[in-house]
Computed example of a mutant assay.
Amino acid sequence: MIDGDRSGTFAWSAAEVALGSAPGAAGLLGAVLRLRSELAAHRAPLPDRAVAEDQLDALGRQAVSSSAPDTESLRHSLLLVASALGSVSALSAALTELRVAVEAMALPR
């Protein structure tokens, strides 16, 4: 564990998502996994890394949940992840993918 990195704690697979989940769940889980992987590879210290990891875990839990997605929770988690990582250009493509996946899964307002 380096600098409090907890990247090994997230272990959901696409197969878990397929079991009765909401439309867009596989895309959300894929985006979460990609951003977690890229975040783990980004070894520079980030003051809000733990916040981003916690919110990625929350998004992953929603992706594998069999219940309807909580739109406000999805968007809140995305906002916190974007706030924590938005200034890291190396993560911008993965963060954009996450935003698109959350919007695809979230219900219209």
Rank of each mutant, 00 (worst) to 15 (best):
E53S: 12
T71H: 05
L74K: 11
A15Y: 13
R109H: 07
G4K: 08
G30S: 13
L79V: 02
M1N: 05
P69W: 06
A41I: 00
G27V: 00
E72M: 04
E72Y: 07
R34K: 15
L29S: 10
A52I: 03
G86C: 01
A93R: 03
V100H: 07
S89I: 01
A14N: 08
Q62V: 00
G30M: 00
L78A: 03
A22W: 13
A63Q: 10
R109T: 02
S77G: 09
R49D: 13
V17M: 10
R34N: 14
G60L: 09
S66N: 09
A82W: 02
G86Q: 06
A106C: 03
A101E: 02
P45M: 14
S87N: 13
A11F: 05
A14T: 14
L46A: 00
A41N: 13
G4R: 09
E97P: 00
S7T: 08
R49P: 06
D57P: 00
D70P: 07
D48G: 01
A22E: 15
S89D: 14
E103D: 15
T96L: 12
S21R: 15
D70N: 15
G20H: 12
G20T: 09
R61Y: 09
R6Y: 04
A101S: 15
A94H: 10
E72Q: 01
G86K: 04
S92W: 13
A14R: 13
P23D: 14
A31I: 02
E72W: 05
I2Q: 15
L85I: 02
R34A: 15
S89Y: 09
A93F: 01
L56N: 09
S65P: 01
V81R: 04
P23V: 14
D57Y: 08
A104Y: 06
L39Y: 09
A41M: 04
A31G: 07
V64W: 04
R99T: 14
A25D: 10
L91Y: 10
A11D: 15
A22Q: 14
S87I: 04
D48M: 11
D54P: 01
T96N: 11
L98G: 11
A22T: 07
T9W: 12
T71L: 07
P108W: 04
L39Q: 09
D3R: 04
V102R: 12
V64Y: 09
G30R: 10
G24R: 10
H76Y: 13
L59I: 07
S67F: 06
Q55G: 01
T71P: 02
G20Q: 13
Q55V: 01
E53N: 06
L46H: 01
A44S: 11
L29F: 08
V51P: 03
A41D: 15
A44D: 15
V100F: 08
L56F: 09
I2F: 13
G86W: 08
A15H: 12
